[in-house]
Amino acid sequence: MRPARRWAAAVLAAVTVLSGCAGQEPDPTVTVFAAASLRESFTTLGEEFEDRHPGTEVEFSFGGSDTLAAGITGGAPADVFASADEATMARVTRAGGTSGEPEVFARNRLQIVTLPGNPHRVRSLGDLDRPELKVVLCDSSVPCGAASRAVLRTARVRLSPVSYEQDVKSALTKVRLKEADAALVYATDVRAAGDTVTGVEFPEADTALNSYPIAVLDDAPQPERAGEFVAFVRSAEGRRVLRAAGFLEPAPGAP
């Protein structure tokens, strides 16, 4: 029955999107739009949330934060939005899309990702400047690119990358396929790639931490359950799962 119900829910969601109106009928599904980097941890959290709230289902739509934000401001019937950066969330908030103040629930820091076993013995950002190394960075128009630019400025390192990738996953892919020797990606991406790559921490990463805000949306069809889900993500259990995926705790004293 479960797959059939999920399917029906998807159709319903599609219909409401098409008709452009958020339905009022009792719908036990919480729809969460979440940044792609949250896929592993949020999938785990969703299942745990469903176990704790029998009868409730959590539907995820993972994607680039920009794309998701565009969907939300365009009227997609989502309950919760979890963005990979504050700027994108701010755009939704400015458009009146969130109900209440977004809260940072996790942070991500950059790592140098290298070929498995780090054969070129990369230890610092400065090492990336070696001419024999092919380095890829995210394009500065996407969050990981902006962060990369910031840490390189801090470290006063000027790189000549071979490519500016359109997102963090494709930067990682270039290293996984051994096309590039190193890239700057998030610690969570390195963790998710397992032993196909090796991550190298560097101190300047702390100067450009990426904050992940989460918020219940103004037009949420299930505002109550949505609030409960947000609380669950910020709970001790939620933090444990996020930490396991490589995320950092939100800054102490953050709201």
């Binding site: 890829v136 394009d139 990358p161 071979v162 490519s163 500016y164 990738e165 359109q166 494709s170 892919t173």
Partner: peptide, 8 residues
């Protein structure tokens, strides 16, 4: 973009 990357 997948094969050749992106460099101005």
């Amino acid at each position: 973009i997948t094969f050749a990357g992106s460099f101005p």
